[in-house]
């Protein structure tokens, strides 16, 4: 006959503790894995845009980032940017250069496409549309969320690559062509994958889609 053994109070406490630990570990793993967990979704229907024709929607893993473009400030750069957006050229393009809490950069459509990623050349690609002149004469305060066209060390080498700054960069005025500003969803960009060792990211995050509102 098997003798029934009654659990002591101590054993019961240990058992409950182990159950709680397992629940905690599971929840923690889910939270850690889901980097977008606390990101609020933006309802575009509820927003009244003053100039809807200048609103671009950048969709990434954690949601939509709403950017207002400034054609009156940098007409040629915004024209180029809109052209690339409207032709869906930026879809599936990598955020190849990311500096934690400072800047995200994407738009290398030659070497940064998801199905054609070239780590050796990423950041040097061209759009095939040619370079455009820098538009840096107008005053522009490069505050957090500002969007600009990237260039090489020389002026007038802007093409398709763009950056969004995640903190104020007062020295950028006169250096880079401003094209717009994030008006909603900046917090989403802080979730873009970065590397602690380098500005260039191995297995980077990608733009899902980039569209104009109209």
């Amino acid at each position: 006959m098997i003798k029934k053994i009654k659990a002591t109070i101590f054993e019961k406490i240990i058992f409950v503790f182990l159950i709680l630990l397992a629940i905690f570990a599971l929840s923690f793993t889910i939270i850690i894995k889901n980097k977008c967990l606390f990101i609020k979704e933006i309802n575009l229907q509820k927003i009244n845009f003053e100039k809807p024709e200048n609103i671009a929607i950048l969709n990434v893993e954690c949601g939509n980032v709403i950017i207002e473009l400034y054609p009156e400030l940098s007409p040629n750069a915004v024209k180029r940017f809109k052209k690339l957006i409207k032709s869906n050229t930026y879809n599936n393009v990598a955020f190849h250069r990311v500096i934690k809490n400072k800047l995200v950069q994407a738009g290398d459509i030659e070497f940064g496409k998801k199905n054609n990623l070239d780590y050796g050349k990423i950041g040097t690609g061209k759009s095939g549309l040619g370079t455009i002149k820098s538009e840096v004469d107008n005053e522009f305060d490069f505050k957090k969320g500002s969007v600009g066209l990237a260039r090489s060390l020389k002026y007038d080498t802007e093409d398709s690559q763009f950056f969004i700054i995640l903190e104020d960069e007062p020295l950028f005025e006169g250096e880079y062509t401003p094209i717009g500003k994030v008006i909603y969803g900046i917090e989403i960009l802080y979730k873009i994958k970065y590397s602690h060792k380098s500005e260039y990211v191995l297995r980077p995050d990608f733009i899902n889609t980039f569209k104009m509102l109209y």
Partner: peptide, 16 residues
Amino acid sequence: KSNTIYNLIKIPNLEI
């Protein structure tokens, strides 16, 4: 802003 400055004018260890 040392890194930003370095990226712009290629001189290290500078501040605003």
